[in-house]
Amino acid sequence: MKSAWSLMLIVALGVSGCGSEDPARSDTARVVKLVDVSTAQQLPSRRFIGRVEARQTVDLSFRVGGQLSELPATPGTVIAQGETIARLDPTDYQLAVRRAEAEHQQATSTLSRQRNLLEQNAVSRSVFEEAETQYRLTEVQLDNARQELSYSVIEAPFDALITRRMVDNHTNVQPNTDIVRVQDVGELRVRINIPEGLIRYIDEPERFDLEAQLVSMPGQRLPLVYREHVTEPDEVAQTYEVALAFRDQDAVIALPGMTASVSVSPREVVEPPGVVVPVSAIAKDSNGDFRVWRYTADDGTVHPQPVVVGEMQDRHIAVLSGLDVGDTIVAAGVHALRDGMRVRPMEEAL
């Protein structure tokens, strides 16, 4: 029994002795692949898939209710600005105007009579003021009746393409019920989503050639001009929506909803800011911030370097700040590194 216990003790000491060699092994330099940081390349031509859209799309409705008596709007047709799109039966509203006109005329006569009597001291001022108040009320009622009569007609707010009718003629509709959907096709636009790396050039559209190709016009390249952009990025794709317009609207054969292929080509050399590194060199720290591992040749160690990243192209990503041209960083295996760790370049290990 005693010999067995002695054997276990010897084995335990042997194991602990083997464990004491771990620090020495931890000092063994890890083999890594290093790369030198280079400048970002010239912005290449880019192609985006966009969609043709009208300048604006509006659902039109009546502010008052009633029965539809006219609905000349036919989907696919264009109604000129100011022309009738829909009309309610105006009978009730015309009667309301006539009633308001009669009451206003009576109030006008009463006010005139009370004014003459007041000048003769035949009535008190309070009676005159009551007649004056009634006159003003009937004036408001008349204006309101005329306004409601005007609300019984929907006119085209612009040269409107009728895209959809929501109700049929002779239908009784409530106020604010959508009647038709119209689009302003006076200027067709193309909307695309561009990455955040290009949005910084949005204020310099003259530095780029913008052209679109449409399936409806094969083989033709249509020049575009910048109109506006959304300043909030898409929550998922981190892209920004940009609206472009056809330079020659009369030459375009297209309808809203069609697909467009948009090319963005720099007219001159455009060097993006920052440097580029392999995507595999980028890691995140415990706070979720981006970093790389910078290599120090003097002692062969690596240290974390916070960076601000930009647009990704192929297998490289732009670094906007945190690195300079000529810095050496670890290109792969960055998740296994720690601050001050000794490493060996892969070239030396071969």
Score class of each variant (00 low, 15 high):
M1A: 05
K2M: 02
A4Q: 03
W5A: 06
L7G: 07
A29R: 08
V31K: 03
Q42A: 09
R47K: 04
R51M: 01
F62I: 02
S69W: 09
S69A: 15
L71D: 04
P75L: 03
G76A: 13
D92N: 13
L95D: 09
Q106T: 11
T110Q: 15
N116A: 13
N116F: 11
L117H: 06
A122H: 07
A122F: 11
V127K: 10
F128I: 04
F128T: 11
R136Y: 14
Q141S: 14
S150A: 08
S152A: 08
V153M: 08
V153Q: 13
E155A: 15
P157K: 02
A160S: 14
V167N: 11
P175N: 09
D178R: 11
R189I: 00
V190H: 02
E196Y: 03
R200F: 05
E206S: 11
Q213G: 07
V215M: 12
V230Q: 09
T231R: 06
P233I: 01
D234P: 03
A237F: 08
G257P: 01
P266D: 01
E268P: 03
G274N: 05
A283P: 11
K284W: 13
D289E: 14
F290R: 08
V292S: 11
W293Y: 15
T296F: 10
V302Y: 06
P304E: 04
V308W: 10
G310H: 02
M312G: 13
I317A: 13
V319W: 00
V319T: 02
T328S: 05
E348G: 07
L350M: 13
L350D: 13
